[in-house]
């Protein structure tokens, strides 16, 4: 059983002032030790909020219920002390924008050392500095001795994200939650940072929850994928299955918006329309206003997650959707 690193069940999140409308609804997912799992979805689908809830990083205005067990230990409703001892040491987070994730007034060395010393009281300043230096080498930052005493503004975006990664791996965590770690970076730098992240996680046997809105990123990184739409998981599948036989119309839409697919399908349209917010959630299937397969039942009843081969998906049409390739050809 200890193979399961993170076990999230029935996670519900509502924010104060949203009249009881939940931003995240009944999210369940698991991550095994050393596994890379990707969470994909459009902006506002609840990816960040779900993962922050697990780490206890949401503001006081958030009401979180459900369960999230980390190596068997319940995180939802856990004491501040418990959460603090886990976050940064067993569970680490990498944020989207490296330009804002580092404190502008503290040197890089101080910010890395801090991560070490918070969780290891007996480590001296000197020792922490040595380890910080090694971490800079681990994330392949050139001239680490010189870089250690510099400040964030002296680093490029890609280099800053390496520093953030160094902070994340400082205590060799079991799980890293990477919230769109490359979205803010130049395309050329994106691949480098992802490679680094993948290599470090493999080396240390670290589980990785990779949040992204780009299915393209998923292909080379993840073993399994969860697709979120409007606060719920609409499909969970092995990465190969996601690309070969997507079971949910929304997943198909995401695939079709990939540049590579677009050529193949002779410029098929992106998914039309915009995702709903928690306050304007449609009845029935939340995706129905944008779904080309929508029927009456979709407008009335919320579909539940069902198994289709090795995947699970929440769609009334389930197995009776046309094959994905065919759909592209006929479109």
């Amino acid at each position: 059983m200890s193979d399961i690193l993170l076990d999230v069940r029935g996670l519900d999140i509502a924010f104060f002032g949203m009249a009881g409308q939940r931003s995240v609804r009944d999210v369940s997912l698991t991550i095994a030790r050393g596994e890379t799992v990707s969470i994909v979805g459009e902006s506002g689908s609840g990816k960040s909020v779900s993962m922050r809830a697990i780490m206890g990083l949401l503001p006081d205005s958030a009401y979180v219920s459900g369960s999230a067990k980390f190596l068997g230990q319940e995180l939802i409703g856990a004491s501040t002390a418990t959460l603090r001892s886990l976050t940064g040491s067993r569970i680490a987070m990498i944020f989207q924008d490296p330009l804002t994730a580092l404190n502008p007034l503290l040197s890089i060395g101080d910010q890395i050392s801090e991560a070490i010393r918070i969780h290891n009281r007996d480590v001296s300043r000197r020792e922490a500095r040595e380890r910080a230096l090694q971490l800079l080498r681990d994330v392949a930052i050139p001239f680490p001795e010189k870089r250690l005493d510099q400040y964030p503004h002296e680093f490029s975006g890609g280099m800053r994200q390496r520093v953030v990664i160094a902070i994340a791996i400082a205590n060799k965590p079991d799980l890293i939650i990477a919230d769109e770690p490359t979205t803010a970076l130049d395309v050329t730098v994106q691949a480098e940072v992802l490679d680094l992240l993948r290599r470090l996680c493999r080396q240390n046997g670290t589980g990785l929850a990779l949040i992204t809105h780009d299915l393209g990123v998923v292909a080379g990184m993840a073993e399994r994928v969860y697709v979120m739409y409007a606060g719920s998981i609409v499909e969970a599948a092995l990465v190969d299955d996601i690309f070969e036989r997507p079971a949910h119309p929304y997943t198909r839409g995401l695939l079709r918006s990939l540049p590579k697919m677009k050529d193949q399908a002779k410029r098929l349209e992106d998914i039309g329309g915009t995702p709903p917010t928690a306050a304007s959630l449609p009845t029935g299937c939340a995706f129905h206003p944008r779904c080309s397969f929508a029927t009456d039942v979709c407008r009335k009843e919320t579909p539940r997650l069902n198994s289709y081969g090795r995947s699970i998906a929440a769609c009334h049409l389930g197995g009776s959707l046309p094959a994905f390739e065919k759909e592209i050809e006929t479109a």
């Binding site: 780490m55 990083l57 501040t80 603090r84 976050t87 987070m93 944020f95 994730a101 991560a115």
Partner: peptide, 24 residues
Amino acid sequence: DYILMAKAKGSSGLRILFHHALRN
């Protein structure tokens, strides 16, 4: 973000308030 980051590192509330936030 860097305050959230400090929290994610496991910093205490007082440390966040005075070491990270107040200076800025």
